[in-house]
């Protein structure tokens, strides 16, 4: 790189090497009808999915239509509060805005009765012991703190059941 020719006043001062360029998106999230029903269910400690009339898959949280068949998913299905870890990520790296102590485990959990895993936090288990097929259960916030958000489930934890067989979740990894 060629040398810069600087005016006297810039010689011998500490150069600026980077500048702040924050990006901020401030907007309103509209849940849509299907997800609104789901979130109102969460506020009652119920997990409600929707089944596709063509492929019979149960989606949670529901978006109101099947992405494969392109048809409305009108049949509502109540799901259990237990599920199976399909895949997971052990987070060891600090990042901006992070509220959790390291390391923690973020997992995709296939709720019993559903065909699409949700992402949530795993706790009460060492990161080293988390594995695919692990059976887990939802731990809810106290009843008077429940709101229409998935954060009303504080985390999932192992429920002590034997691991789920691979065939029960192999289509979801």
């Amino acid at each position: 790189m060629p040398e810069l020719v600087l005016p006297d006043r810039l010689r011998g001062v500490e150069p600026v090497r980077s500048i702040r360029t924050p990006a901020r998106l401030d907007y309103e999230f509209t849940a849509g009808r299907a997800t609104s029903r789901f979130l109102r269910g969460v506020a009652e400690k119920r997990l409600l999915g929707q089944r596709c009339p063509v492929c019979r898959k149960v989606y949670v949280p529901p978006r109101g239509a099947c992405p494969t068949d392109g048809v409305p998913t009108e049949e509502e299905v109540e799901l259990g509060h237990t599920g199976t870890v399909t895949t997971f990520c052990v987070v060891n790296v600090q990042f901006y805005g992070q509220a959790m102590e390291l390391p923690y485990v973020s997992a995709l959990i296939l709720l019993d009765g559903s065909d699409l895993p949700i992402m949530h936090l795993l706790q009460e288990v060492s990161a080293d012991d988390v594995h695919m097929g692990m059976r887990v259960e939802a731990v809810w916030v106290p009843d008077d703190e429940i709101e229409p958000t998935l954060e009303s489930i504080r985390y999932f934890r192992p429920n002590g059941e034997p691991d789920a067989p691979w065939d029960s979740y192999k289509d979801n990894v």
Partner: peptide, 22 residues
């Protein structure tokens, strides 16, 4: 299902970038 009132919530996404200047 058309009787459902749709929920709306504020959402903020923020990235604290710094850019190197050269």
């Amino acid at each position: 299902m058309s009787d459902v009132e749709v929920m709306i919530a504020p959402n903020v996404i923020e990235y604290p970038f710094r850019r190197t200047t050269g």
